[in-house]
């Protein structure tokens, strides 16, 4: 084992252990932050840094094989869908009127539908009206 190999091994272990540390930090933050809007940020630490570092370390361990290709596919997928899912949760919370303190200016106005739309919705809500 020459110097270069030892160097690469060391980098991969640093990446894996650092990723695990960030995952633990994200979990601890999700446990002890006081409300939902701060917990989102704690989870996003695990989503970005922890995921990237762990995937990088495992890629280096895998070498130039099919394992690395699969890990890269997993990493790219999580890289795109992680923030999207976080945004979806935050947007759903905001739309339902669940806002942090001091953000009332962003509250959505209630929508009044016209009679036709309301009728259509009512029909959709009870598709079995009139028996089976």
């Amino acid at each position: 084992m020459n110097f270069f190999q030892i160097f690469v091994e060391a980098i991969s272990w640093i990446a894996i252990l650092g990723g695990c540390a960030f995952m633990l930090v994200g979990a601890i933050g999700a446990l002890r932050f006081p409300d939902f809007w701060t917990r989102i940020h704690a989870v996003s630490v695990a989503d970005s840094a922890g995921m990237l570092l762990l995937t990088l370390g495992m890629c280096i361990q895998g070498g130039f094989t099919l394992v690395t290709v699969k890990l890269i596919i997993i990493g790219v997928f999580l890289f795109i869908t992680g923030p999207t899912a976080t945004h979806a949760v935050a947007n759903a919370a905001m739309v339902s009127g669940f806002l942090p303190k001091g953000a009332d200016e962003f509250r959505k106005p209630k929508i009044a539908h016209d009679a036709k739309t309301r009728k259509l919705k009512a029909k959709k809500k009870s598709p079995l009206k009139g028996g089976l």
């Binding site: 989102i40 940020h41 996003s44 630490v45 989503d47 970005s48 840094a49 890289f79 795109i80 992680g82 923030p83 999207t84 976080t86 945004h87 935050a90 947007n91 905001m94 962003f106």
Partner: peptide, 15 residues
């Protein structure tokens, strides 16, 4: 841009 904001911890795109 929106995903980058969400991906950097500390800021989340809400709407």
């Amino acid at each position: 841009f929106a995903n980058s904001i969400t991906l950097t911890p500390g800021t989340v795109t809400v709407e």
